[in-house]
């Protein structure tokens, strides 16, 4: 029969020339400590894909402050510094100012970036520090097991807002990207997610764009990633990604908040 495909066995397909996806080489060949389905792992993976594809593994220095991702240096096969809680942008300022030709990034959670480190983040942004901030926003404190974050949304239950966040007494959820976007030192602010295949692809592109902008010396870049926390949200990973889609993204809409002006 014309066009009929004969049976192919796996051995015919599993050949180097047919490889279309493999674990990025810049991601160390070890187990990650993150909970099943955690967006941190996904972001680590795609960021290391970007690092590998751009060929900058030997020219990048990362900063991992306190939070679930404090161990990021156990997984990313690059030079890294672990920083005190909230101080990543200050540490990154020290690194980038000393090594302006290297790529520098911080990898921060919502509590680290927007609460305890709000001042450092704001002022690094305002100085137009030429590095990338990867901001994982899962609306909760993961590492300390489920307390309220500055990004916890109205009514959301956490262990320190057990009856739901009440903005009247607990403050309003903070959109840090929107807050800093108007600053002239800020080149690029975008909000992405990793809850669907399409969103993962887009988030990866955003990370790559941010590094390209850094190469061009355009200034402070913030890639916020709306992520999940299945363990502390007390959901399955699949449910947690649906919650990202149906509850968080409507409040934290995805897309570019600020892009650099195109040079003519």
């Amino acid at each position: 029969m014309a066009g009929e495909v004969l049976d192919v066995v796996a051995e015919d397909i599993v050949r180097p020339e047919n490889l279309v996806y493999r674990r990025p080489s810049a991601l160390l060949d070890v187990d990650m400590h993150y909970c099943p389905g955690c967006g941190h792992s996904t972001v680590h993976k795609i960021f290391m894909e970007v690092v590998e594809e751009m060929g900058i593994q030997h020219d990048i220095i990362g900063v991992a402050p306190v939070g679930c991702s404090v161990f990021a240096y156990n997984y990313m096969d690059i030079d890294m510094q672990q920083a005190a809680h909230g101080r990543a942008c200050a540490v990154a300022t020290g690194i980038k100012r000393m090594l302006p030709d290297k790529f520098v990034f911080t990898y921060q959670g919502d509590g680290d970036l927007a609460a305890i480190g709000g001042n450092e983040t704001l002022h690094a942004a305002n100085r137009g520090e030429n590095f990338l901030v990867i901001f994982i926003n899962n609306a909760i404190y993961g590492m300390t097991s489920g307390q309220m974050a500055p990004t916890t949304i109205d009514g959301m239950v956490t262990t320190t807002s057990p009856y739901g966040r009440d903005p009247k007494t607990m403050g309003y959820p903070l959109k840090f990207g929107d807050l800093i976007a108007p600053l002239p030192g800020v080149a690029y602010v975008t909000r992405q997610a990793v809850n669907t295949v399409q969103n993962v692809r887009r988030a990866k592109k955003a990370l790559q764009r941010a590094l390209e902008y850094q190469k061009q010396g355009l200034g402070f870049c913030l890639v916020e990633i709306v992520s999940n926390c299945p363990s502390n949200w007390k959901m399955t990973p699949v449910e947690s990604n649906k919650y990202v889609q149906n509850v968080l993204i409507p409040f934290y809409p995805l897309g570019d908040i600020k892009v650099p002006e195109v040079k003519k």
Binding site: D12, I13, N18, R23, L27, M32, Y34, S41, T42, V197
Partner: peptide, 24 residues
Amino acid sequence: TGCVNCAIICPDAVITVYRKSLKP
């Protein structure tokens, strides 16, 4: 079909994907 969706969404990068195009 080797679409790589599974590998892209996999947080722990445990999936390797191969794809082959077969012409009649």
